[in-house]
Structures are given as C-alpha cells and as structure tokens.
Nucleic acid binder design. Structure first.
Lengths: 336, 336
DNA sequence: CGATTTTGCGCAAACGTTTGCTCTGTTGTC
DNA sequence: GACAACAGAGCAAACGTTTGCGCAAAATCG
C-alpha cells in the first residue's frame, strides 16, 4: 500500500537510482537543482518512506536494537530499558525488549530469533555468570553490551561496583553499632549477587567480625523468597539485629517477615536494600539502600553499543558508575 | 557471516528452492525422503536460520509487533507490555517497545518509523482522545488494538469500564459516610480520565449530592502533580474528607500532601486510587484502589492483534474487563 | 509396450532498495 | 576547432528469500 521508490521514480520521470540518491543525500551525487527539488517535493507530497525490509536487506542492518532483561516488571530493568530507548531514539534506532524470566533456554531462544539478522546489536542485562549466551554473542560477532552483569574482560560492560556498594551498606550498619548482621544473598549464578556478598563479607572482616555462615541465607530474587529467607534468620537462637539484602525486592520480603513476626524496623531489625527502586522511598519506614543510576546505565549501554557498531571491535570499554548510599528510616530511627 | 540458503543448497547439492521448501515444510512439496533427511541434517548442523530481512521483504511481514505506551516506568504500562510480549512470543513474534511521554509529535515520529513496513501491527496504549495518530493507523491500514484508551466504535479495543470503576470507588466512600468527596481529575484529553470523572459525578448524583466544582481539580499524571492539586483542595475553607484520585500515582501525591499538612489517613482524609499498581499495597496505610488486570490487557490485546492480522478487518472487537474494588487502609481504618 | 500419470526437483522472477559503473551531451581548454 | 573534462542521470547487479511453473525420469495403467 505505501508508495515505493520505483513508483516515485516513474511519477517524477527519473530513474529509481536517482531518487534513491536524492533521498539519501548521496555525497557523490551530481544532480541538477531542478531535478532534486522536483523529487524532494514529490517525496514530501507522497510521504514516501523507504521500505525498512528492503533497505535492511541491502544495507545489512536494521536500525533495531535488542534489550534482554530478566523481567521488565522489575522497575530496575524498566529503567534500564528506558535509558536504552532514549539514547537509541536519538540515533534513529528502535528497540526490541524481551524478558527472559531468568530461564537460560528462553534467553537462548530469544537470542536466536533476534539474531536472524533483524537486530544490529544487543544490550544484555540478564546474563548469569556461567552463561553460554554471552560466549555465543562473541562467537557470532554480534555487537553487545553487558549491563549490571559481570563478564570477563572481553566484553563491553556498564554497571556499578557491587562490592563497594554492599560494603557501604554493611559499614553503615556497623557504624550504627550492629554486630550481628545477616545477609540475604542472591543466587551465586549472578555476578551482582556474588560481588555484593563479597562486599558484605569484606566489611565485616575489616571490622574484625568473623562471618557467621548461619547468617547468610540464599533467596530468590522475588519478594516471596525474601520472606522465607528472613523467617529462617529470625528463627535463629541468636537472631541478627540487621540484614543486608541483595536487592530491594528481597528487602521488601524482609519487611513482610518482620511485620509477621511482630518486629519493629529499625528498632528490632534494621534492613538495607540495593538498587533504590521507586518503592524504596515509599515504604514505611523508608528503605535504606544503594542507589544505582539505572536509566543512566541504559543510556551509557546504548551509546557504547552504537559506538561499537561503527568502530568495530576494539578494546572493550568498561563503565563503572559509583554506588551511593541512601539512608532512610529502615536503619536510622531519626528518619522516616 | 551466518550461512545463507544458497550456500546450504550448494553444500547439499540441491537447488535453493528445494531447501527453502524443506525448511518451511511446504505442504505441496514433493521430495524424496533421502533428500529431505540430508538437507534437514545439514540445516541442524550448520544452525541455519533464514535471514529475517530477506524473508520479510518477500513475505511482506516482519513478525515484529509494536507497543506504544506513555512511559514504561509506570508499572501499569510495564505490565501491559509484559502481557503483549508473552502472548506474542507464543506465536513467534517479538515486540518493539516505545515510550511517547505523552507527546503527540514523538508518538507520530515513532509511528512513522515503525510503519516503514518493519512492523506487522501495533498495540497503542498511549493515544489521547483527539489523537490523529489513531486515524492515521486506520487510513494506512495498519492492524492495531487500543488499550485502556477510548476510541469510537471503529477500532479494536481492550480496557476496563472506567466509569464503573470510579463509581465503585466513590460509592465506597459514600457508604463510609463521606459527603465532601473531592476528585483529582486527569487531563480531559484522556478518555480514561474523562470516564472516571463521569463515574465519580454519577455516583454523587445518585446519592443526591450535588457536585461542587471546587472539589474537582485537574492534575498531571505524575506524583508531583498530585501533591500540588491536593494542596489546593486542602486549602479550601470547607476541605474534603475524601478524595478520589484518577490513578494511583496521583493518589501517592495525595499521600504526600496529607503528610505535609499533618493530616492522617484515613481519619482526616480518605484516599482512593486507580490501577492497583504494586506500590498501592505497599503504602502505609495501603491504598484503596480499583484493580485493573494490566497484564491480561496486554495478552488480550496481542491476541486480538494477531487475530486481526490473519482475518483481515472485520467488525472490530471490544473486550471490556470488569474493574474490581480493592479496599485497604486508606479508606478503612480497620485495615492496614 | 506405448500412453499417461506421478515423482522429484530445477528455473527464474519478484520483493524494494543501494551503488559501482557507463553513457550522453555540454562546457572548458589550448 | 579538436579534445578533454565534467555534469547529469540511467543501467543492472546484488542483498537472501519464496513460489508458480516447467520438465525430465520413473512409475503406473490398459
């Protein structure tokens, strides 16, 4: 139904190739001002737009980017996506978003589908540590940027220093006088989880406190998991006075568990999260957490991806943004 | 870099067309079992996948859907998208997501970009009332479904009965004895806002209460707007005892304003929202609101879109899911 | 055993662009 | 005035598929 280049050429009485060159402002184009004006006029009038498929086939690029996240319902990933989208739009790219739900096979499927040359590059915010998908991306020469997920030095990367962030949170609790500090840990498959746990352990060690294995429990990355894990902690003979959660969603689970047990936050149990999702500031008391600039992650990732696409593979760049401790009422009784 | 049909044909010693038919399981294909096996084997081994561009060019479809929302950072729209994504994936479609930020020109730009035949259809959750984009979609024969946004009877549509939902909320407040009930209204450009306001007014009228124009203030659809609007309400000589907010985000603004003014919820000010975003249950007190099954919206929209694409334009279907009142502590002191 | 059907596959055009090259006529140079 | 140079635009191949049609050879039939 939309008008094609050929039809446009026929209408204006020139050859299709000429129209193409005019539309694309071909630098090595030599065409009379009159012809150019006539064609441009007709392009405006008919609202001609080149067929993306045909163009993509010839040019071998689609101007579409792919973003892979575990779940867009998690505000952190929604924000990352939004950042990618904005930066991409500025350069005329559109973005396909896919949620993997953490299943490697679904992730794999999606990648294969996207690969079929429909995508110019991808931002991957879902890859776990032992993930073969990342290797696959490298082997197939697909430009990609990893967000908030560790890899070795071979990939473009943007994220925060998770170890430092977790240390900040833990040190904050130590400074408040806490000594029995628990950790709601994430799956060791995720680099973020591993690094945060390491940061937690480092902070304790630096304070001369030896880590009690019973105080570290693993949780799934959804609220329900946090509840269960926290209950296990609260059933200990010597229960912790504070808990460092691997992320805000798990921390919310800790809130629920505390409420169900009749414990008051922060008097009986202090809690810290990670990510500073919008909900964190809305909880009562507010959740002390580590702010990560998610939308900036997205923007940076998109820019690095585009840069990588024009420049070809160079030394991969790594962007590490600083984590920031946000103190709220869940640790400090003086705040809301 | 990926292997092509032609190369595959050369390797297996048959004509490209034969490979194509085998790969696509062409029903009118007549090929010896031996050849078929040999080719299929080679396809597996090489990991051949047809080039999406070339395929799209020939077939005139891309197996990509577009979703337009005001802002994916709003959990309501994230949920709608997720629904679309899931239903689309089941049918082998991937989805492009774009945020319009409510700007009609940006929406227009995005549509033009997407149209260029890269998209097989779109789900539009962002169109305002006087929106020309919807007309444009119709004129250009692009399959589309409107979500949560009214249109006349000419389009496929899925949403709730906003009027009924707002009536439920208002009647709930009336039943609790409230008489001065205010309304944080949305922009009249949005059909949802218009219908909710109408439902609010109907409920008052049915209760024999005449609407006080001073009790209806317009707010933008972000938290900041809700704060300002609520302050204006609270400055009235006879201030309202309850407020029906056009959505949860505005209601959160009302919470803030109440807190800043030193009013207690629900004793001094009862509040209802709309949408039941995850945050609503987490506020203290919990926000009484109208639950809308956002993810189901998305699923339904995708299914209708795909149906429309195979069937061609028939009588447009309209799916209206029932709104459900969720009572929490922001209106009922007996709850949390 | 010759005619007819069926099997198995190849041929080539088409989808809508892009782009290196060719070709004609006009202008400039000596 | 002969020749080079250049402006202006057309030609055709190519990108990787799909698909209607054609055409041999093998199988079936009377």
């Amino acid at each position: 139904m939309p008008i094609t280049l050929k039809e446009l050429a026929a209408k204006s009485g020139v050859h299709p190739s000429t129209v193409s060159r005019i539309v694309n402002d071909d630098p090595q184009l030599r065409v009379s001002a009159a012809t150019r004006a006539r064609v441009k006029e007709l392009v405006k009038k008919t609202g001609y737009r080149p067929d993306g498929m045909a163009r993509g086939l010839k040019l071998r690029q689609s101007f579409v980017l792919g973003v892979l996240v575990p779940d867009v319902l998690n505000p952190l990933f929604a924000a990352i996506f939004r950042g990618v989208e904005d930066a991409a739009l500025e350069e005329g790219y559109t973005v396909i978003l896919s949620s993997t739900d953490g299943h490697e096979d679904r992730e794999r499927d999606i990648m294969l589908t996207l690969q079929s040359r429909m995508i110019d590059g991808m931002v991957v915010a879902s890859a776990s540590l032992r993930d073969s998908s990342v290797r696959w991306l490298r082997e197939n020469g697909i430009p990609h940027v990893l967000v908030n997920r560790y890899s070795d030095q071979k990939d473009y990367f943007v994220g925060t220093d998770d170890r430092l962030g977790a240390r900040l949170a833990t040190e904050h609790l130590l400074a408040l006088g806490h000594r029995r500090i628990a950790h709601l840990a994430g799956s060791p498959r995720y680099s973020t989880a591993v690094n945060r746990r390491r940061g937690y352990e480092e902070a304790l060690k630096a304070a001369g406190i030896e880590a009690d294995p019973a105080l570290i429990v693993e949780t799934s990355l959804v609220a329900g998991g946090g509840v269960l894990a926290t209950h296990r902690l609260l059933e200990l003979r010597k229960r912790p006075t504070a808990v460092v959660a691997v992320n805000d969603v798990a921390a919310v689970g800790a809130y629920d568990a505390a409420e169900q047990t009749g414990l008051r936050i922060p008097a009986d149990l202090a809690i810290t999260g990670y990510n500073d999702i919008p909900l964190a500031a809305r909880l009562r008391p507010g959740l002390t957490t580590i702010h990560v600039p998610a939308q900036e992650f997205g923007r940076a990732a998109a820019r690095m991806l585009l840069e990588q696409m024009v420049a070809g593979r160079h030394e991969p760049k790594r962007v590490v943004l600083p984590p920031e401790l946000i103190v709220r009422g869940s640790t400090d009784p003086g705040r809301t």
